[in-house]
């Protein structure tokens, strides 16, 4: 299907300006790109766990949402929206509701990889018709840049600082998209805000699914990553070009790359743009970048095999 940006400009904006996300934040762009691709004849219920998005878009009495919206706590966005979706089904069953709704949750990586993981897994297994989006900025940014299960090896954070005894985070991130795909849900994908067309297509597929769908979308945070704020899109693109953040989808069990970098850039190209990796470029940490490269290569090879491209 042809997807034109000029067509998206005519679609409903579900998130208004006037929210209090930081200038240059990648997350609201992720939300806009996904919701601009929502069916135009539906209504939405949006859910956030506690996090940047929630505290910045619903500061009483100001809400940035033109959709119905609910937040209840941190670890339970998937459970909360599954309650809303079931309520919808209950009212439809009893003939008490005419309008159609779609259900979307936007959780950060902390609220998705870590504290909200059980709730997400349960909701996926139960098969609720909902799109769960992880806007991934690779740390707990709302509380001040603490490491999460999505924080990559070697990254500085306030709870994985570098020092004489540590190079920053000493563990690799987990592969949440693959873990979600292992729930055998109809649609799971990895996306990045630099590739709006890819995002919109994945969102359209997700909205069309009669069951759970999941998008893990790279949404850089300049406060946490330490780079100039205008470079948010550029950094997202670099994560893709270095194969640190590949773009793919798993549709009914079929793995497929949805975009492939023309040339695979060395991870150094990505790392050197950000203050959170600055300490890796000292002489004593010389070997660390290779460790990161090896990890990225291994994950990339595994992905190529899964996608039948190896």
């Amino acid at each position: 299907m042809a997807l034109k940006l000029k067509d998206l400009t005519k679609n409903k904006e579900w998130l208004t300006g006037g929210h209090r996300m930081c200038a240059g934040c990648g997350a609201p762009t992720a939300v806009r790109q996904i919701l601009l691709a929502a069916p135009q004849d539906t209504n939405l219920v949006v859910c956030n766990p506690t996090g940047c998005m929630e505290v910045s878009t619903t500061i009483y009495p100001y809400t940035s949402w033109r959709a119905s919206y609910i937040h209840s706590a941190f670890e339970n966005a998937a459970a909360t929206i599954s309650g809303v979706e079931t309520a919808y089904n209950a009212l439809k069953k009893r003939g008490k509701l005419e309008d159609d709704f779609h259900f979307v949750a936007f959780g950060g990586d902390g609220g998705t990889y870590d504290i909200g993981f059980q709730s997400l897994s349960g909701a996926l297994e139960r098969g609720h018709r909902m799109l769960y989006v992880c806007y991934n900025n690779e740390a707990y940014m709302n509380t001040g840049i603490q490491r999460s299960g999505a924080t990559p090896y070697g990254a500085w954070s306030t709870t994985s600082p570098f020092g004489s005894e540590s190079i920053g985070k000493v563990q690799n991130r987990k592969d949440l998209t693959a873990i979600v795909a292992a729930h055998n849900i109809p649609y799971a994908a990895q996306a990045s805000i630099h590739n709006w067309r890819d995002v919109a297509r994945k969102a359209q597929k997700s909205f069309a699914v009669n069951g759970p769908s999941f998008i893990n979308i790279m949404a850089p945070c300049h406060r946490g990553w330490r780079y100039p704020m205008e470079k948010t899109i550029e950094l997202a693109k670099l994560s893709f070009e270095t194969c640190i953040w590949p773009l793919y989808e798993v549709e009914e069990g079929q793995w497929k790359l949805t975009a492939k970098p023309r040339e695979k850039k060395p991870v150094e190209e990505f790392l050197k743009t950000q203050g959170r990796f600055r300490h890796l470029f000292t002489p004593e940490n010389k070997g660390q970048i290779q460790i990161i490269q090896d990890f990225v290569d291994r994950e990339w090879e595994t992905l190529l095999k899964r996608c039948g491209e190896a």
Partner: peptide
């Protein structure tokens, strides 16, 4: 009118 500014703007601005 490529609208890149539109699709990348975090503030619907």
């Amino acid at each position: 009118n490529c609208f890149f500014c539109f699709i990348y703007c975090p503030d619907t601005a």
